[in-house]
Simulated scan of single mutants.
Amino acid sequence: MPELPEVEVSRMGISPHVEGQQIIAVKVHDSRLRWPVPERVQAVVGERLQRVQRRAKYLLLETDAGTLILHLGMSGALRVVPSSTPLKKHDHVELVFANGQSLRLNDPRRFGALLYVDDDAEQHVLLKNLGPEPLTEAFNTDYLFQRSRGRQQAIKTFIMDNHVVVGVGNIYANESLFKAGIHPKRAAGKVSRQRYQRLVPLIKETLAQAIQQGGTSLRDFTQVDGQPGYFAQQLAVYGRGGKLCMRCKTRLKEIRLGQRSTVYCPQCQR
């Protein structure tokens, strides 16, 4: 599933090609996504796409008439192509622009979504209870420390909870906790303020580096398939269970935590 950095790079990729463009058609080739694509998406026809914003893993395509809420699901990808380009298999929805280009959502597994709201998108049921964005000032040591008090939940699943903070997916939770030297199973409420003071900037750094690497390698989204994938970054623990720790040479352990693969160093993380 695309994580926050991949979604942010998708936003960076499509924005220059679609912002300011007039939408002349919304073509729903197959409405059977995670939720049926509603007829109300047609409300944006004739409007200019003013901005493409991101909230958690949702892309918000804003017009004066309302906002399209787009989610890539587990396998979704976006690309901008000439509108005359033949459809690919699994091209389920497209926005057609007056300049002859189309933004297409390709989603083989159909866990993506395209929805519409005519008022404040932030108050939509999918968004209104989300935690702060991790790269903003709202996500800070005091906030995370206070939210953690009394919590017996493992620190890894705690920072992956979108009600606490959005976008810290499995890869980035593994990596951030390793950098901070915190055992992933440690109870969130037992982590000291001092350790949160170290963890918070490392979460920000890990996500920012992933976005930067994706942005650096980003090709024109009119030429590629729109699938940035996970960025070619040096991962210290994720996917390396059973291998030697890059820091201390202890063998890394892999467990299941919150039904997700969790890799950690028993020596470096306490």
Rank of each mutant, 00 (worst) to 15 (best):
V96R: 14
G181Q: 10
R40A: 11
R51N: 11
G100C: 04
T222Y: 08
A208H: 08
T85H: 15
V164T: 14
L127F: 03
H183P: 07
G13K: 03
N170D: 12
Q146F: 02
R109S: 08
R256V: 09
L177K: 03
Q259Y: 08
E47T: 05
R55A: 05
R260C: 10
R195C: 03
H90D: 04
V37F: 05
N140A: 06
A25G: 13
R11C: 09
I182S: 02
V93R: 00
G229F: 06
F111C: 10
L59V: 06
L68V: 08
P36H: 12
N106P: 05
Y172S: 00
D118F: 03
K128P: 01
L4C: 06
Q227I: 04
R193N: 11
A210G: 06
D120S: 13
V7M: 09
R151N: 05
A188T: 07
I171S: 00
V45R: 06
L49V: 15
V117A: 07
G20M: 06
A25C: 09
L4N: 02
A180G: 07
R195V: 09
D119H: 15
L257S: 04
V200K: 08
H163D: 13
E47I: 04
S102I: 07
C245P: 01
K249F: 04
S148I: 03
Q213P: 09
L207Q: 03
